[in-house]
Amino acid sequence: MTYIDMDELKAAIASALHVPVDQVAEDSSGRTIPQWDSIGHMNLVLALEERFNTSFTVEEIMAMRDVATIRTILEGKRSSRAGK
């Protein structure tokens, strides 16, 4: 598994959602961060695509409901890319 630095991920999420980075934890989600609403989620996905140089499927976008899941998806994409 290719490691995604949690601090880097938290910083990217905080920047995309316009919240302080200390407001973002591994278990953060739309339920804990008010700015993480439907439009905020799309902004977040676009920012993550750019930051981590990847693209997400519809299924991945819908699954990315908390920080831990986002990290898992990103690590999976990096691993599959590294394996090619």
């Binding site: 739309g30 609403d37 439907s38 299924e59 819908m62 409901r65």
Partner: peptide, 13 residues
């Protein structure tokens, strides 16, 4: 479709 069903919670916010 799964994508729509799964989207409901997300798009309600």
């Amino acid at each position: 479709p799964q994508s729509i069903e799964g989207a409901a919670e997300l798009w309600m916010r």
